[in-house]
Simulated scan of single mutants.
Amino acid sequence: MSCGDPHETDCSEVLDHLYEFLDREMPDSDCNKFESHFEECSPCLEKYGLEQAVKKLVKRCCGHDDVPTDLRSKVMGRIDLIRSGQAVPDQDITAQDFTASADLPIAGNEA
Rank of each mutant, 00 (worst) to 15 (best):
M1C: 08
S2T: 11
C3T: 08
D5Q: 14
D5R: 13
P6K: 09
H7F: 07
E8P: 07
E8V: 15
D10K: 09
D10N: 09
C11S: 09
S12N: 14
S12E: 15
E13P: 02
L15N: 04
L15E: 12
H17M: 03
H17F: 06
H17D: 07
H17V: 07
Y19P: 00
E20S: 10
E20H: 08
F21P: 02
R24V: 12
E25R: 13
P27Q: 11
D28S: 08
S29L: 10
S29Q: 12
S29N: 11
D30L: 14
D30M: 12
C31T: 03
C31D: 10
F34W: 05
S36G: 10
S36A: 11
H37T: 00
F38H: 01
F38N: 01
E39H: 11
E40Y: 03
C41W: 07
S42K: 11
S42V: 12
S42Y: 05
P43T: 03
L45S: 02
E46W: 04
E46V: 03
K47F: 03
K47I: 13
Y48C: 04
Y48L: 06
Y48E: 05
L50D: 08
E51A: 12
E51I: 00
Q52L: 10
Q52T: 08
A53D: 03
A53V: 04
A53S: 13
V54A: 02
V54S: 02
V54M: 04
K55M: 09
K55N: 08
K56Q: 14
L57N: 08
V58M: 14
V58W: 05
K59W: 06
R60I: 07
C61F: 10
C61G: 11
C62A: 15
C62F: 15
G63N: 04
H64G: 14
D66R: 03
V67P: 00
V67I: 15
P68S: 03
T69E: 01
T69W: 00
L71F: 02
L71C: 09
L71H: 03
R72P: 00
S73E: 15
S73Q: 15
S73D: 15
S73H: 12
S73R: 14
V75M: 13
V75P: 04
G77T: 02
G77A: 09
G77E: 07
R78C: 08
I79E: 01
D80T: 07
D80L: 12
D80A: 15
L81D: 03
L81A: 02
I82V: 13
R83E: 00
R83I: 00
R83Y: 00
S84N: 06
S84Y: 01
G85A: 09
Q86Y: 06
V88N: 01
V88K: 01
P89C: 04
D90V: 04
Q91N: 12
Q91L: 05
D92T: 02
D92L: 14
T94N: 03
A95D: 12
Q96M: 04
D97V: 05
F98E: 01
F98D: 00
A100Y: 13
D103Y: 04
D103W: 03
I106F: 10
I106G: 08
G108S: 09
N109W: 13
N109P: 07
E110P: 00
E110R: 13
